[in-house]
Nucleic acid binder design. Sequence first.
DNA 1: TACTCCCACTAGAGCGCGCTAGTAGAGCGC
DNA 2: GCGCTCTACTAGCGCGCTCTAGTGGGAGTA
Lengths: 341, 341
Amino acid sequence: MDVPGKQRPTMADVAEKAGVSRALVSIVFRHQPGASQETRERVLKVADEIGYRPDSAARLLARGRSRTLGVMFTVHQPFHADLVEGIYPEAERLGYDVLLSATAEGRGETKAVEALLSHRCEAAILLGPDAAPAELDALGQRTVTVSVGRRVPLARIDSVHTAEGKGIRQAMDHLVELGHRHIVHIDGGRGPGSAERRRAYRAAMRRHGLESELRVVPGDHTEASGIETGDLLLAERERGRPLPTAVLAGNDRCAMGLLMALTRAGVEVPRDISVVGYDDSHLSHLMPIGLTTVRQDAVLMAEYAVRFAVERLENEKLDPREAVLEPKLVVRGTSGPPRGA
Amino acid sequence: MDVPGKQRPTMADVAEKAGVSRALVSIVFRHQPGASQETRERVLKVADEIGYRPDSAARLLARGRSRTLGVMFTVHQPFHADLVEGIYPEAERLGYDVLLSATAEGRGETKAVEALLSHRCEAAILLGPDAAPAELDALGQRTVTVSVGRRVPLARIDSVHTAEGKGIRQAMDHLVELGHRHIVHIDGGRGPGSAERRRAYRAAMRRHGLESELRVVPGDHTEASGIETGDLLLAERERGRPLPTAVLAGNDRCAMGLLMALTRAGVEVPRDISVVGYDDSHLSHLMPIGLTTVRQDAVLMAEYAVRFAVERLENEKLDPREAVLEPKLVVRGTSGPPRGA
DNA sequence: TACTCCCACTAGAGCGCGCTAGTAGAGCGC
DNA sequence: GCGCTCTACTAGCGCGCTCTAGTGGGAGTA
């Protein structure tokens, strides 16, 4: 049990109780050479007894470096959750600590990043940042910065993302091969990767000679957006306009919303309409038939992000780098041949 | 732009450039009396120019207290996201900083809490902790600890949760009033609140004279669990056992999984079967018809948790407290009268 | 003038640690 | 004996900040 004296024990306490100097305790706790095995064990035993726990604030102050990576994420994004899960182990492997800072209502990106910086993070890993390139560039001048999921060609920072274009192309080829011609895209608005996805969708439609069918419905990367689009399409059907035979959603969340709206109205997927998502987040496994989607490998992205940050920290002046990962179409149950085929 | 000299500017730099002492800069940044308005502005201006940012590690070391609350959460729980969103503003209001530490695969609760402690958090707010009461009790001896969403009567720590029993009772009364008799409960396993929910379900069934229909399907608080149960019920129907007319899921995620499985099989909700969730997380608004569920007010819970932590920090030895919030049934589209009615 | 009071400001001692420079002692070769 | 190396350990400064105990000087009072 702890001393009732409240005060959290310090190295000096351990040192005294173990009959050694403070410096030696420090050596032991840093796993540095310079202490005998016997002493090590004694020190650790004493430390455990009095409940000593190194104070990272002091540690961080004393050594110049904090060896801490800051991660900004959005609390409601399942894909961010996947990324965070990947970041922890890789950071630990490289001997870095991780600090999370969430954006939320009333807590914008600026605030979240400020928090990271004031906690002396050596690098900021931003998951799907929404800030303007100029701001990111400025941040990049201040500290090592990595953007995950969003390309920021205008800022001199590292970034990790998938080859959005390729992913969309694969999805489109898949749909067209199945016989679809009337394929609608739900746009992701300002969401990371949206611009590239939209562009690739347009290109694919043209390449397949389907310009006349091209249609982009405005939206964003939320379930609500999918529901809205679903309701829109259903309402249009009421008025005589047939449903498209396939929808390429902005991401999985959007696809899920769409599926809800459609299934609810008795539309059968994929018999009546095919739906393709993007991300391959946990969501996509939810349905028994599974969501056809484009996989972004969260773990790999996380590893790249951490490695970029660490390498830049240890190497000072590299040029900004960009990791472009290969996306991969994962065909599951929500895509099939169109009704007529 | 920053000095190319790399070094992050310190108070001393600001002091020198502004022609004042370090102490005065400190006063200005702490918004303490003792500096003229004029000087304040000059100091802040200089600080901004050279990009000074207080170093919270040093600050934290220097003043005895860190004024930081640590929050342990699970990265994939939407309800935790809601809670985190509520914690930030309340903590800020009370002048506390927030540090997040996620549990994830390969990063258990112990590790997550260790991280918080070594960062000198003064309190640990645990969202849906899974640890044994004895462990929580031990933690509570070490540091101010609040358990959110889970009662821990055996540990001397504060806790915030809803009156699970009341919530379930409301839901059950609602279903019975609608005419349901054959109501199945999907259990939440070791999830927070599960035991109380299960118990309340049993009690309600008995109270309504439905013991013979009582059925608890084992599960947990994930979508997968809902899907499994859905498939199970559907398979049973194949073998001649009729579907229950209503299902009380362990939480919203589970309810969503169940809905997926059922809807997919052509079962209409609520015509063929009613489904009730628990939490009223973001998920419940997803479907156009909305999920009938029991609301736990995340914002209120978050506020209580923060306040408990802070009050205990500022008051030393209070007795462990327990906030039991009133749950509230939110009737939306997934519940209705059973088929025969 | 001499006194007090207050305001704006400063000096300097830590906070708990990391780290460099150093020491004491043992072992070894010659 | 001497010098050398190696291991096991210690002294003490400094990281960037907070905070207590001051200092100096101008206004107010008698």
